[in-house]
Design a protein around this nucleic acid. Structure first.
Lengths: 340, 340
DNA sequence: GATTGTTATGTGCCCGTGCACATTTTCATC
DNA sequence: GATGAAAATGTGCACGGGCACATAACAATC
């Protein structure tokens, strides 16, 4: 692996000149620059990462994280990923500040301000999809502060990457699993969705329905709108199952899973019901272990926490952008036996 | 984050003394050493990784990899992981040499010799479980050359880590999946195993059987020993299905999956058969997409390639051992919808 | 041709750690 | 108390890259 010094020796110039060419700092004779670039290409020069990181020490990097979903256990796992990466980055003299706020745009903008006051060099955020926030992210980019979106994308702005799941695709996978697990001649599915205005829920339902519509033995009976509150979920699920006793499969696209499962249990329907949910929160784990939930689809929350910090750190130390702007987490199927 | 210099300043000594204490190089006044250690603990000093890696440049690290499974497409994916990590490590001036040999112990020992001739500083190997190899690995460790086992463990020797799957556990998961996917009143399973003397196959079968024995509606009908050769597999599977037309589920614990699936197809049994296999080789992918195979369980071949190199590099640059000696890959369930 | 300005190039230090070597201190011995 | 060995401590450089500053080369102007 070639170094700047080696290139300089071959070209018969000093390290400084090579450095100026590589970082296009100007003030170099075009002919010399061309010659250097030829050598750089011939040797396939790649800067030594340890050198880059060490040189970047002076910047005293600080990364900011803004997460919504207070009280949402999914984000607790995201935080775990953040904490682990934080520890890893600590020995590069890079620290992490986490702000946890609601989904309200004004709160998110305020969180950005607070982080800027603390001189963060980059921000990872689970953003509300809002034009004001998008504009703010663009402004940050112009200021030289890169932003990575996580969990939920905010398209059409200058965030340097998105890390999260493809909700439509995981909805399709849920449907595929259900088809494999429900071998009854007629599958009568009840869909329990979250609030429609949250993109991830509606995307999941869309993917789910799209795939199941192709199967003639599947009938989607009813779609109940749910809420995270488990008591409300209990009632809605009970209503659905009372109105449609022929339902033998349930799809929970969002929260309220625990309440829904309790409803199934209290009606004594757990034996003949195939239930597919999302995420691996504690209560879902419990219901998987009890055999009430057949499978749950996870979206690697740990990676959603760690990867954005990784991307920011790499960008700030080496200037390198991620290979893929969209970093989709794998669709991770969990059943009783591999839930741990 | 504290540095050696900072600690030295506080202790009123020079960098060299702190360095001697931290790396117990001796020749330090015990009282001074104690004082320094107190400061080190109080500040929770962690060496800066970039500094460590940069200092390790002089070693000109070379990592060797020895893989069996020539012609086995699973290992092609392992190689992909290796290549990717190789590229990543290249910008730390660390290179990788791959040797691909058969499972024979003599070949593996010879491969180690070839790598040593090329002055490798560490070795990742998919080992045959043999005492001679274990002894050799111990000797390498004493020589200061760390070894990481991948795919198959070689217990009771001084390999610094193992990266691979828990076969028993993935067998259990296959069983759990089958139970969820076969809702017929009677599940009649045919198990198609690989050669019994290969540990991973027998472990998978053991885990599979252990779980299914707890279900009274499941009957394991017959276990056919299979081979990787798809023509032999075709014949064995045909025989099994002819002798037991009531079989409605097949479990392939090892190779010969493609031949077995062709047999199922030629008997027109694909509609009512639940097939669960391992790995995500091209032919398995094809059969998943055709709907012949219901699910396949993967063991993150990419990670099996990249992680051992990661462990070796970290150990050689920082002296740090992995948190867990056993690095199990996640049990990764793939169906038609998430096979890509 | 000396002066000023511009462009081009070279040099030194920093980042944090490891390690070889130089220097100082300590202590025993005559 | 001078001598020498041993123990304890200090110092300089390397690793690779970024960046500020010093120096050199060259052109334009009076």
């Amino acid at each position: 692996m070639a170094t700047i010094k080696e290139i300089a020796d071959i070209a018969g110039v000093s390290r400084g000149t090579v450095d100026r060419v590589l970082n296009n700092r100007g003030n170099v004779n075009p002919k010399t620059a061309e010659k250097i670039m030829e050598i750089v290409n011939a040797l396939d020069y790649k800067p030594n990462k340890a050198g880059l990181v060490l040189a970047a020490q002076k910047k005293n990097l600080k990364l900011g994280v803004i997460l919504f979903g207070e009280g949402n256990p999914f984000f607790d796992e995201v935080i775990e990923g953040i904490r682990q990466k934080e520890e890893e980055l600590a020995c590069y003299n890079c620290s992490v500040i986490v702000e946890r706020v609601s989904i309200e745009v004004s709160r998110q903008l305020a969180a950005i301000d607070r982080l800027l006051e603390q001189d963060v060099n980059g921000i990872a955020i689970s953003p509300t999809n809002d034009a004001r926030l998008a504009a703010r992210i663009d402004a940050l980019f112009e200021m030289g502060i890169p932003v990575v979106a996580l969990n939920t994308d905010i398209p059409g702005c200058k965030r340097i990457a998105f890390v999260g799941s493809n909700y439509y695709h995981s909805g399709e996978t849920a449907a595929g699993l259900m088809r494999l697990m429900c071998k009854d001649p007629a599958i009568n599915v009840g869909i329990i969705t979250g609030s429609n205005d949250v993109l991830c829920h509606s995307e999941r339902v869309a993917g789910f329905q799209h795939l199941l519509k192709q199967c003639e033995n599947v009938q989607i009976l009813e779609t109940a709108t749910n809420e995270d509150d488990d008591f409300i979920s209990y009632d809605r699920t009970t209503q659905l199952l009372r109105a449609h006793p022929e339902v033998n499969a349930l799809f929970f696209a969002a929260g309220g899973v625990y309440g829904g499962c309790r409803a199934v249990l209290s009606l004594g329907r757990e034996k003949d019901m195939t239930i597919i949910t999302f995420d691996r929160v504690a209560t879902t784990k419990e219901m998987i272990q009890k055999g009430v939930i057949s499978a749950t689809i996870c979206q690697q929350p740990h990676k959603q926490g760690s990867k954005p910090l990784d991307i920011l750190f790499t960008y700030l130390t080496t200037g390198e952008l991620p290979k893929n702007e969209m970093e989709y987490t794998a669709v991770d199927i969990r059943i009783k036996e591999n839930i741990e």
